[in-house]
């Protein structure tokens, strides 16, 4: 098993994908942190309050600053997850992979562990960008850089988990839709447009709120920020959100394993 994991890590590190994605993840973290750190205020002026900007605690400002870019980060990790299997189908390297690791569930398990490790790696890169840029701006503005260290640190550590889990969701999607380009388009389209839109629509009906909070993007928010952005109380606690997200990842990996076991590799 260890050898199979090492091979998967190598596959990721021996093409240009990984550092291209590293730059994108770093940029997503840094840019959103710059934006959030610049516009958020503890007590919004009357004009901002009229626009609906709520009063925020120092913790909320810091958490928003350091984690807002993760919405882009997790989509990028989902794409990496898709590509770890999608490029194997596309370039037919799946044949060689299965010749080296004929146990198919073992091959998928190796990919799962490698992707979780890359979630940690990219999470650290993300935090270098977001904390580096965000803390600079916050301190220049005279805001608290690291309030309530315990809770804030928990959110930052959970970024590493969230990115890995989204990579696993991508892995399952990549097995489900074997055309890599189609899988990326569907994945990004759903994550950026369909799912958030559906969340808003569902929330319009009376029972919708209690359903929408289980949506992947809202569960992710719950994990990272620990409070609802719109101030509504209808949000999962951070650990419940984490369990929901783990559930999504587990289901997608299970589908991926099932299909990989059954398919003929021609």
């Amino acid at each position: 098993m260890g050898t199979a994991i090492k091979a998967e890590v190598r596959k990721l590190l021996t093409t240009r994908l990984w550092w291209g994605m590293a730059i994108a993840v770093l940029a997503a973290g840094a840019l959103l942190a710059l934006l959030m750190a610049s516009i958020l205020n503890e007590t919004p002026n009357p004009e901002q309050q009229a626009q609906g900007q709520p009063a925020m605690t120092p913790l909320q400002i810091a958490t928003s600053t350091y984690t807002s870019g993760s919405a882009f980060g997790y989509v990028l990790l989902m794409v990496i997850g898709i590509m770890t299997i999608g490029s194997e189908y596309r370039h037919k390297t799946i044949t060689g992979s299965l010749l080296a690791v004929p146990h198919r569930s073992r091959l998928i398990a190796a990919k799962v562990i490698a992707l979780l490790a890359f979630g940690v790696l990219y999470g650290l890169i993300f935090l270098i960008g977001s904390v580096g840029a965000g803390a600079t701006v916050l301190s220049i503005r005279g805001l608290e850089v690291f309030p309530e260290p315990g809770t804030l640190l928990r959110s930052l550590v959970l970024v590493l988990l969230v990115l890995g889990l989204w990579a696993l969701i991508g892995l399952g999607l990549g097995v489900l839709i074997t055309n890599q380009i189609a899988a990326i388009l569907v994945g990004v389209g759903v994550a950026f447009i369909v799912e958030p839109l559906l969340g808003v629509l569902v929330s319009q009906v009376s029972w919708g709120e209690s359903l929408a909070k289980y949506f992947p993007s809202r569960a992710t928010n719950a994990v990272l920020q620990g409070y609802a952005q719109d101030g509504s109380t209808n949000q999962l606690s951070w650990w419940a959100g984490a369990l929901v997200l783990i559930g999504y990842a587990a289901i997608m990996v299970a589908i991926g394993t099932f299909l990989t076991e059954r398919r003929d590799v021609t």
Partner: peptide, 24 residues
């Protein structure tokens, strides 16, 4: 099996090293 079973962005040496690590 086929002469096309390579990732076009991976060098020949890295292709073989991936197999080497999988096989220990």
């Amino acid at each position: 099996l086929e002469a096309t079973n390579f990732h076009p962005g991976r060098t020949g040496r890295d292709h073989l090293r991936v197999i080497a690590s999988a096989a220990g």
